[in-house]
């Protein structure tokens, strides 16, 4: 009986400890935002932006940077798809897919890319070796930017509540407000996702 009680106690304690530790680790992992850098303020400052973005006048431009193989960004794609149904305008959505220099174009083919391609008005552009990403100052996959018709930055950050978790959140609400109701004041939000480029790049 003693050993049974002891075993049960140890078992339950181990179970709870494992559950708590796991929950802590997972929560920390999911809720820890990625660091962000100096984001490009105006698209006009971008070299060859017209060529790259093919921006249409009088429309907001949504630029999503992602790593094709980042699993967390798939939630961003899902969120974007769900949010796109509530768009009152037709913003130009450009998804810049990171592709290493030495990899072929098909390297970007992934579930996230396929999910993004399903969204209307989304154009996927290959970002060779993250060069465009560097021009925008973006380092984290899932980092989403909204530039107003005047090419000014309106929204910067992730549109998922936590890493890899899709769903509604204040960032996604702000994202929708900036698109449906353009505002002058830009807002910044935490980004949850993988790092697009390495530090040595």
């Amino acid at each position: 009986m003693f050993w049974e009680i002891t075993f049960k106690s140890i078992g339950f304690a181990a179970l709870i400890a494992m559950f708590g530790f796991g929950t802590f680790v997972l929560t920390d992992y999911s809720s820890r935002p990625a660091p962000t850098g100096e984001i490009l303020e105006n698209l006009e400052h971008l070299d060859d932006s017209q060529f790259i973005l093919n921006r249409r006048d009088n429309e907001s431009t949504v630029v999503l940077f992602y790593h094709p193989h980042c699993p967390c960004t798939f939630a961003t794609a899902r969120c974007l798809q769900r949010l796109s149904t509530d768009f009152k305008t037709r913003p130009q959505i450009i998804a810049l897919a990171y592709c290493p220099e030495d990899q072929p174009d098909r390297w970007i083919e992934s579930s996230t890319t396929r999910q993004l391609k399903k969204i209307a008005d989304v154009r996927v552009v290959i970002d060779r070796d993250g060069s465009i990403c560097q021009q925008f100052g973006v380092t984290t996959s899932g980092h989403t930017l909204i530039y107003g018709p005047d090419a000014e930055l309106r929204f910067s950050g992730g549109i998922t509540p936590y890493r890899g978790h899709e769903g509604y959140c204040r960032a996604s609400t702000a994202f929708m407000q900036h698109l449906n109701h353009p505002q002058k004041h830009p807002t910044n939000w935490p980004v949850f996702g993988c790092q697009i480029t390495s530090n040595n790049q």
């Binding site: 980042c70 699993p71 798939f74 990899q103 993988c194 697009i196 390495s198």
Partner: peptide, 11 residues
């Protein structure tokens, strides 16, 4: 759903 976590080409 999330086999790897990436940093550029590294994962």
């Amino acid at each position: 759903y999330s086999p790897l976590t990436w940093i550029g080409q590294q994962y």
